[in-house]
């Protein structure tokens, strides 16, 4: 049985920890609200751009000179995985669920005889992938969205990716991140960025429906040439904002249960402490009484 002094020390230390976790929970909650708003604010642009892109893609369907960002290179030998995680831990299973999903996907691709390159956004992803797939990591970006994620940061990543694509370093690009559903639920999501996935409904609609009536100025090709890199940036921005909201949500939930666990622990320790104290008092009394009787 631990001594009273030790127990007191432990209770004090758990109380400190609880204070920290509950503070972290509050901070995460307020950051979550902001991140969620940001993710929502980013949606209209992405939606409208997807809309435009669909119309354009229908117009270009079957065209031989479709840009490679849209149509691909006709081969998919080298795949670039963008693994978007957080820079910081203490957010429950957030990072590991992404990394686990990414590892599974990488193993699949490798088994299919493809070559894989990894671009890590966020330190935690790199830390966890390094041991197994260290040689595949081509680049790591840290500190993205440290204070507040901006479109500019997403744009910088998109430029980097675009440049790699232009240089022929990969044929297909996928991003893996957690889509925000609620503070408790995040959905691991794979999304193909290059070549662009045209929504199936649009393909079904056929070229006759939409593209024929649109007038393009100057022409489809020039618009696509401008639109595709932007689209890439917007998709990355969207994924990162979702990820940021998910991170805060996961952290909030994790810190909430940590605070509760600390509460339980304090309760148990206090019980033991009191029991030990009482036992000691009883023992001392017995010693005094039996000492008095012996006289």
């Amino acid at each position: 049985m631990a001594s009273l002094k030790e127990l007191r020390g432990r209770i004090a230390s758990v109380k400190q920890t609880q204070k920290i976790t509950s503070a972290m929970k509050l901070v995460a909650a307020s950051k979550l609200k902001r991140a969620q708003e940001q993710a929502e604010a980013a949606r209209p642009f992405a939606e409208r751009m997807a809309n435009m892109l669909t119309n354009l893609a229908i117009g270009m369907a079957g065209a031989e000179n479709a840009p490679p960002l849209l149509a691909g290179r006709g081969q998919q030998q080298v795949v670039l995985m963008i693994v978007a995680t957080a820079d910081r831990g203490l957010c429950g299973g957030f990072n590991s669920s992404i990394v686990r999903g990414a590892k599974r996907r990488i193993a699949e691709l490798l088994a299919a005889g493809k070559q894989v390159k990894i671009l890590c956004v966020g330190r935690k992803g790199r830390d966890q992938l390094r041991r197994e797939y260290g040689s595949l990591i081509v680049e790591t970006m840290e500190g993205v969205g440290r204070t507040r994620l901006t479109y500019g940061e997403a744009l910088a990543i998109a430029r980097r990716v675009e440049r790699m694509f232009e240089a022929g370093e990969f044929d297909r690009c996928e991003i893996v991140y957690n889509r925000f559903k609620s503070a408790i639920t995040q959905i691991l999501t794979f999304h193909q960025l290059i070549p662009v996935e045209v929504p199936a409904a649009a393909e079904a609609a056929g070229p006759a429906e939409a593209a024929a009536v649109y007038e393009f100025e100057p022409d489809e090709e020039s618009i696509l040439k401008e639109l595709l890199p932007r689209n890439l940036a917007v998709q990355i921005y969207g994924a990162l904002t979702e990820n940021a909201a998910s991170e805060q949500g996961a952290r909030m939930t994790a810190m909430d249960s940590a605070t509760r666990n600390a509460g339980d622990m304090i309760h148990r320790l206090t019980l033991t402490y009191n029991r030990t104290r009482q036992a000691q008092i009883t023992r001392e009394l017995i010693e005094i009484i039996s000492g008095a009787e012996a006289l």
């Binding site: 435009m52 119309n55 354009l56 009536v213 649109y214 007038e215 393009f216 100025e217 100057p218 020039s222 618009i223 401008e226």
Partner: peptide
């Protein structure tokens, strides 16, 4: 210029 009932147009 865009007035109501403009035809479908996409432009840079």
């Amino acid at each position: 210029g865009v007035l109501p009932e403009h035809s479908l147009l996409m432009s840079l």
